[in-house]
Amino acid sequence: MQTTLTVNGEERRLDHDVRTSLLDALRDHLGLTGTKKGCDHGQCGACTILLNGKRINACLTLAAMHEGDEVTTIEGLGTPEAMSPLQSAFVTCDGYQCGFCTAGQIMSATGMLAELKEGMPSHVSPSLSEGSEMTDPEVAERMSGNLCRCSAYPFIREAIAMASEDK
């Protein structure tokens, strides 16, 4: 079957199996292998992308469901020569080690910062309606869908804090 979607600002037409996940479509069909598959079950967050501006696990949805949607992957955030503030902060703070969960962490953090700005509450927010400050417990809670087995967690959160201050 065929699906057309916009990936990193560019219209892409896919000819794919009905069973193809959005993750496999991005990786194997479009060659955007920056997005990683760590579990294929929505448990690790390595495949986090932005779908119409919101963060999702690309492994938990089928490509066929996204006709006309807008997808942003790690390749759409920046390049090695021109990194986004978050990407650059991850390098500075050593917010990774092996680098495999990194795209997911950065995409998730990008989405998470927007959610915070919009006043979306989390489990640890003091109030459901008042919004919340960007504290470390808030960020830890909101980023807990992204596992890092190298366990760079303190440095990932340091990078997120650094990038958000830069903005």
């Binding site: 992957t73 390749e75 920046g78 390049t79 680098g99």
Partner: peptide, 15 residues
């Protein structure tokens, strides 16, 4: 900083 860092954070390091 890790010299390969910019590749890792932009999805360009090929596993």
């Amino acid at each position: 900083d890790r010299p390969e860092g910019p590749l890792k954070v932009t999805g360009k390091a090929a596993y």
